[in-house]
Design a protein around this nucleic acid. Sequence first.
RNA 1: GCCGGCGUGGCGCAACUGGCAGCGCACUUCACUUGUAAUGAAGGGGUUAGGGGUUCGAGUCCCCUCGCCGGCCCCA
Length: 667
Amino acid sequence: MPELTVTVVSAIEPAERTVTTGTKAWELFVDDSHVIAARIGGQLRDLSWELADGDEVEPVALDSRDGRDILRHSTAHVMAQAVQELHPGAKLGIGPPIANGFYYDFDVTEPFKPADLDAIESKMRKIIKEGQKFDRRVVSEEGARAELAAEPYKLELVGLKGPQDAEGAEVEVGGAELTIYDNLKRDGSLAWKDLCRGPHLPTTKRIPAFKLMRSAAAYWRGDESNPQLQRIYGTAWESKDALDAHLESLEEAARRDHRRVGADLDLFSFPDEIGSGLAVFHPKGGALRKEMEDYSRRRHVEGGYDFVYSPHITKASLFETSGHLDWYAEGMYPPMHVDEERDEHGEVKKPGQDYYLKPMNCPFHCLIYRSRGRSYRELPLRLFEFGSVYRYEKSGVVHGLTRVRGMTQDDAHIFTTREQLEVELERVLVFVLDLLKDYGLDDFYLELSTKDPVKYVGSEELWDEATKILDRVGQQSGLELVPDPGGAAFYGPKISVQARDAIGRTWQMSTIQLDFNEPELFGLGYTAADGSRQRPVMIHRALFGSIERFIGVLTEHYAGAFPPWLAPVQVTAIPIAERHDDYLSELATQLRASGIRVDVDRSDERMQKKIRNAQLQKVPFMLIAGDRDVEERAVSFRYRSGDQDNGVPIADAIARIVDAVDRHIQV
RNA sequence: GCCGGCGUGGCGCAACUGGCAGCGCACUUCACUUGUAAUGAAGGGGUUAGGGGUUCGAGUCCCCUCGCCGGCCCCA
C-alpha cells in the first residue's frame, strides 16, 4: 500500500508520522476527543480531510479559539436547519461565528418572537441528538446556482465569491472553490445543506452546550439600503460549565450596568421631560463628577494647558468655515432661526440668522488662536476646555451615558509646528495614559486609525508623514498597537486608547487626532524664527472622550464601589444608639474640615439597618461608635468587604481616611 | 433612522378572556435605644407616559406622539 509522510504539530514537539494514502486527519487524533478539526498547511480543515504527503497537521481542540469558532459556526448551521424546518419559507442570509457566539440571518415573513426561539432551541437539541454528519462537497459555480435556486441571498454570495463587503460573508464563500456542507442523518439521507466554506465539527453531536440569546433585525450585508433580515444570536461552548460561566459573566455585566447602578446610587437620571440622550447629575453624581473634573483641571495646569471657554451656540457661518455643515450636518441639531423680521404683508424685511448648537469645540479654539498674531515662541499652544457639545444622534443609538445627545468633552486643541509635532504627540500620549491610570484604568492598548482611501482631505505626503509619526509614537509607548485601516476621520489620522475594565471589556477612551484641515480652513498661521509665515498643525485630544461616558465606564469598572477619592459619600458615620449621635457629628465636622464628604446617619433605624444602607450605597468607610468608642475617644471602621477595625483613635481614623483619599487608593 | 419588544406611585413588580388599580422597598409619623447587611405599628402617595378612538365600561383593544430596552445602520 502506498505510503506518505506527514508532520503532526503538537504542543510537545513536531513528530513525523508515516501513514497510508487515503488517511484522514481524524485518524491522527483518535485518542484525543477534544480535537474537532485540524490545521493543515495553515488552513483549517475538517477532520475528514484527506492527508497529502508532506502535510503539516496541527490538531484544533474544541476549547481553543479556532475550535470555538468552528463549534459556533456549526451551531449556527444547526440553528438554520431548525429555523427552516419550523419556518419553511425562511431564506438564509449569513451565519458566522462572532465573539462569544454566533448569529444567522433569515428572511422571514414574520419576525421571530421569544416563543419561536424556544421552539427553535428544542428543534436544535433534537438535531444535535441525531448526530448528523457535516459532509463537505466541492461544487461548481453552476452547480451551486442550481442547488441554491431557492436561496436568493446565497446566490448573491456565489456571485461575490470573495471575502469583500459583507462582514461575516467570508465564512460562506471565502476560499478558492465553492463548497456545500450536507447534513447527513445516520442512515446517510440528506437532512439539510448550506453553502459554506467550513470547516465544521464532524457531527452535530459534538455541540456540548449552546443557548439562543435574542433576535433582532439586521440589514442584509450591513447596508441600510438593503432589506432587513431577522437575525438570531446564540452562544455555544465546549462544556456546560463554560456556557454557565459565560452566562454568569453576562449577569455580572448587567449588575454593573451604569444605568442601573446610577439609579441605585442616586448619581444621575434621564428625565423624559428633557429629551432622549440628555442626562442630569444628582448631588451624588455631581460630587463624583466634580472630583473627576477638579483633578483633571489640576493635572492640565501642571501639563502646561491654557484654559479657555466658549459658548454653546454659534452662527452658521462658523460651521460653514469649519466644514461641519458640509460633512456632519445631519449629526447636528437643526438650526434656530432668529432675528427675522417681516412686514405687514408677511414679506421678509430682514433675513435673520441661523444659530447652531455646537457639536464640536475646535472651531471656537481656532478662533481663539486666530484672535491675534502668533509667534513660533508660543507653540505648542495647548487650549483646554470642558466643552459641552450637542449632537443629534439617531434615536436608535442613544444609550445611557455612553451615547448621548448632550455631553461635555474634556477637549484640548494643541497648535504646534511640524517640527514639534512628534515630541508633542509623545507628551500627549504619556499625559493621557498617566491620567487614565490615576482614575483606576491601567490595562490599555492603542489603535492607529489610518486614511480612508475615499474620504479624506489634504496631501498624501502629509498623511504619510503624520501616520508615520503616530505609528512611531505608538510603538514607543510599549503598548500593543492595533492597526485600524480606513478608520481615520477625513481630516487626519488618529491614535485611540482602548482600556480594559475590571471584567475585561474594552472601551475606547482617549483619542489623539491630527488635523491638517481646520488650520487651513481657518487660515491659521504663526511667524517662524526666520520671519516666514507658517501653518500650525492641530492636535485634537479628548481624554475621557466625554465626561458623561467616562462616568458611565468608571461606574461599570468599579461596579459603583468607587475608590474613596471619587466616592460621592466617602464616610457614613453610624451611631449605635441615639446618645452617640453628637459624638459622631463632632467627628464628622472634623472630617469635613479635612475635605472629606461624610454623612451621619441620624435616622431612627436600628444600627444594623444603617450598616445595610451604607453597604448598599457602597460607601467606602463606615465609622461606627457606641459607648466603648466614646469612652476611648475612638471609632470603629467597617469596610465594604465587611472587614472591621475597632477602637481606632480619632486622630488615626481621620489620618487613615485622608490618606486613602489623597493617594487615590482603593479600599 | 430601521426592525422587534416595552411603558402601572421615587424604585422593583401584580391586576384571568375588557368589569372596584394592588404588593414590597423607599417616604412620613409614633413607639423602641439595640456593637457590624433589614425592629414594630400607623399613614401619605397613581388622570396606569401623553393625546385621540372603539365600548355600557379601557391599565387591558385600535391609531398617533414621546420615552425606554435589544439589535442593525451610524458614532466628526
